[in-house]
Structures are given as structure tokens and as C-alpha cells.
Amino acid sequence: MASLRSMELEINGAQYALTIEPRVTLLDALRENLGLTGTKKGCDQGQCGACTVHVDGERVLACLTLAVQAEGRSIRTIEGLASKDDTLDAVQQAFIEEDAFQCGYCTPGQIMSAVACIREGHAGSDAEIREFMAGNLCRCGAYNGIVAAVRKAAQRIQGAAA
């Protein structure tokens, strides 16, 4: 048996120490070991996007990432998206306004994906948003609302930057 491994993960700007087996995925470490359950498990095999988090600023799937691989990286989850004073991120706010979800289970992954999508510059048109958000499945079928929310948030972010 492989020995347990002690590691520190930087999540949402805070350091978390944990001792786990190397086979523990980042997703399970977040949900089962660290109590950060905002990141969701929908398939656990890279096919739904519910577990999307940011590692060093890029959107990745936590279910196919070993926690140990994220050592020394900067991890951001849905819990770390709102500002310190609890003001919602522009994407979170737009998701509420556009009713871009129903059951809410894919939503954290959608939002983390959308934040990255806008930052990557892939929110230029509805068609582009649809394609670059296609890795996040929504069984409630809130896709129209998601596109509208990403479009609106992108406009607000660009407006604020201008």
C-alpha cells in the first residue's frame, strides 16, 4: 500500500493541510476531506463539467486531477468567487438574473467555466459562448439562460474595464 502523503493545497487564497493517499482526486479531496462541497460530482469521469475549478487561473476538471498534482498551484472553487465582503461575482449575479439554472447542481461548474470563458475571450458571440460552454452539461436544460448570463456578465466586465 502506498503511504499517505501530507500536502498543502492553496484554495481560494487559504492554505489547507491534508494527509491523503495519492489516488485521491482533487474533487474528492475538496468534497470529502476539506468540506468544500460547492464543487459538484456529476459523473466522476470527465464527461459533465460539474466539477470545474480553476487551477492557476485555468478551468479544469477536478475529477480527473489528483489532489497531489495540484500541490503548489493556486486553486479556486465556487466558494472563493464572491469577494471578501460577499459581493457576488458578475457571473454569479447574472446567473441569478437570467435564471440560468433550475436544480442548481451543475451551476457551480457552469459558473466557474463561464468566468474562465469570459477571461479567455471566448464570450464574443452567442455561438462562441455555446461552444465554449459545451463542456458543462445541464440536464434541466437552462442553456438559454446560461448563454444570456455569460453574455450579460461579459458585457458588464468589459464595461467595467473600459
Partner: peptide
């Protein structure tokens, strides 16, 4: 190929 997340990985 794949999705934006998978392409980042």
C-alpha cells in the same frame, strides 16, 4: 476536441 476544461488539462 473534448471540452475547454479537458483541453486545459
Amino acid at each position: 476536441a473534448a471540452s475547454a476544461q479537458l483541453r486545459n488539462m
